[in-house]
């Protein structure tokens, strides 16, 4: 299978401070790929680079074989990448429905079937459709953030810490939905601190440390790996 998304030798700097160093990542169609690592390892920066919010100093980002690393964020959305940002970032003073409509900003035509699809995934959003986004609970906001990104009908969905700050039951529900979204044909690149849960869901994973990829393997292999178990799954050395 060929890669849908490929990052090759990507360097990103914030001023003089390197955030990513020579990052190589690929995501194939239909996969769920997990991006793991500690705080500040470069996970969010990787997603922001893919979305065009950050420009790489070196290396390339390619979608379906075409470079996108110099393309504006709003055009990258149109190319088929949806981004659920860290902290959800829903529009608090717009209604749930308006948040979803903004997700489809690049598209023309009827949104009814898309809305129905989103409300099918997250029935609670339909009940809250006229409420302002800011009045939703954390879990509902996460659902809205995912639904909003899906409204652009992405081929690739970037998810940044969807479990952050949520109760375990809600996290489980969100992860179930992520799997369902993949099964419906959307490829997923998932950033998570919650490594165990992410690896159980993912096909493959990458581990970032200080801006570099230090491990890349099948999710199962990573789950069994001693170093991963110690560093990210909270297990003591055996």
């Amino acid at each position: 299978m060929t890669a849908m998304l490929r990052l090759g030798g990507v360097d990103v700097r914030y001023g003089a401070i390197p955030a990513l160093r020579g990052v190589d990542i690929e995501v194939r169609e239909g996969e769920i790929v997990a991006l793991l690592g500690a705080n500040g390892a470069g996970k969010t920066t990787t997603l922001r680079t893919i979305s065009g919010l950050v420009r790489p100093a070196k290396g390339y980002v390619a979608l379906d074989g075409k470079r996108i690393d110099q393309v504006s964020p709003h055009r990258i959305v149109a190319l088929g990448i949806g981004h659920v940002p860290e902290g959800r970032r829903i529009f608090p003073r717009m209604t749930v429905l308006e948040n979803l409509e903004i997700g489809a900003y690049r598209r023309r035509g009827d949104l009814r079937s898309d809305l129905q699809h989103i409300f099918g995934l997250f029935p609670i959003l339909e009940q809250r459709r006229e409420q302002n986004g800011g009045t939703l609970s954390g879990g509902e906001q996460q659902m809205l953030a995912i639904g909003r990104a899906l409204m652009s009908r992405p081929q690739l969905l970037l998810l940044d810490e969807p479990s952050m700050g949520l109760a375990p039951l809600v996290v489980e529900a969100i992860f179930d939905i992520i799997e369902r979204i993949r099964d419906e044909g959307t490829t997923i690149l998932l950033v998570e601190q919650n490594a165990a849960q992410a690896l159980q869901l993912a096909d493959r994973g990458y581990v970032l440390e200080n801006g570099s990829v230090v491990m890349a393997d099948d999710a199962e292999a990573l789950l069994g790996d001693e170093r991963v178990r110690v560093a990210y799954l909270g297990e003591g050395a055996a």
Binding site: S72, H74, H83, P85, M94, I102, G103, Y105
Partner: peptide
């Protein structure tokens, strides 16, 4: 209108609006 929603989205959070495909 779409134009108005774009303006409100940029006013609330420009960066996220750009991730939704809004040309800031």
């Amino acid at each position: 209108t779409k134009l108005g929603k774009g303006i409100r989205a940029v006013a609330e959070d420009a960066e996220t609006a750009s991730l939704m495909g809004v040309n800031i």
